[in-house]
Each structure stands twice: as C-alpha cells, then as structure tokens.
Amino acid sequence: MSCLQLKGEKALTWTASCARKGNRLKNRAAYFGVFTAFALILSYVEMLIPFHFGIPGVKLGLANLIIVIVLYKTDWREALLLSVVRVVLAGFIFGNLFSILYSLAGGILSLAVMVFLKKKERFGIAGVSIAGGVSHNIGQLVVAMLVVETYQVGYYLPVLLISGVITGLLIGILSGEVLRRIRHIQLT
C-alpha cells in the first residue's frame, strides 16, 4: 500500500509509520550498497591471486564470505539478491557471459542448500558454509555437463568435493569471526 494515497482521519498515524518504513528502506539500501561493493572487491582480489591448480573450478570463493555473512545477518532474500547482483556485475567487469552462467548456477544452488541447512539448525555456520562450497562446485559441474554434452566433465568431482569442503570450512570460520565482531550492528 502506498503511503501517498492515504487521506482522512488516519492520515496522521499512517505518516509516522510511513516515515519509519522509509528510514528502514534507506538503511537497507545503504547496507546493501556496502555489501555489494565488498563482494565485488573480494571478486577482484580473488582474480588477482594467480592460482592455477590445473583443474578448473578449484578456487577460494572469497566472495562467498559476504554471502554467508549477509545470510546470517539479515535473511535469505537479501542474500539471494546480493548473490545475483554480485555475479552479474563481477561477470560484466571481470568475466564474460559464460562465467556469469556458471557462477549463477553455482551461486543459486549453493545459496538454496545453505538456506535449507541453516533452517535445520543442526548445523553451525561452518557446516552451512561447507555445504555451500560443495554445492557451488556441483552446480557449476552440472551446467558444464549440459553445455558440452558429455558426462566426462564429472571426472574431477572428487577433487571439487574436497576443495569445496576446504574452502567452505575456511569461509565458514572467517564469517563466524566477522559475525562475532559485528554482532552489535543492527541491519534490519
């Protein structure tokens, strides 16, 4: 309901709540801008590290750090929006249309798994992040299989599983530390 269309006796009380709503929106927009910038910086740092393991898909996934933090600090809607915005922007700046496609597949699957596991409440942030890292790799692998139409892409699944666990664990520990230090900041 739009705040501008209100008339009559209730107008006064409505404006007060509308103002609060407006402030919240401004806060959200400001924080979201900071998070987006941070995610893009991490994507850039990741790109600067000359790290060729010889097997495509093995990388740190630094930008996932900010996704995990946002997921825990706000909710899954913000995390999803940030994930998509980051992938599209980073893709246009550093990559190409292909890298956007793979990153989106990995990012969305990863976020879906993380949201699901976080709801379960049996897992800590490290477990959620590990599942996110692994499913990110699996999502990209599936898209790669669809694009080249061969199952052979799956040969490196074990390597990608292991690297997903290691990077997911690192990201999980890091974001846990960051969250502990920013726990007094209210985002919603």
């Binding site: 490290a126 477990g127 590990i130 040969y155 699944l157 390597v159 599983l161 664990l169």
Partner: peptide, 24 residues
C-alpha cells in the same frame, strides 16, 4: 564447530575418496 558440521565434512570427503578409488 558443531558435531554435525564435522560429520558433514567427513561424509563428503569419504564420498570423494570413494569415487577417486573407483576411478583409479
């Protein structure tokens, strides 16, 4: 880290080793 976090990590690593052994 919670206990189930460790279990999750170990299960995924075990799956990776298993697939690797089959390939070898």
């Amino acid at each position: 880290m919670k206990k189930s976090d460790w279990i999750l990590a170990v299960v995924i690593l075990a799956a990776a080793v298993l697939i690797f052994l089959v390939q070898a």
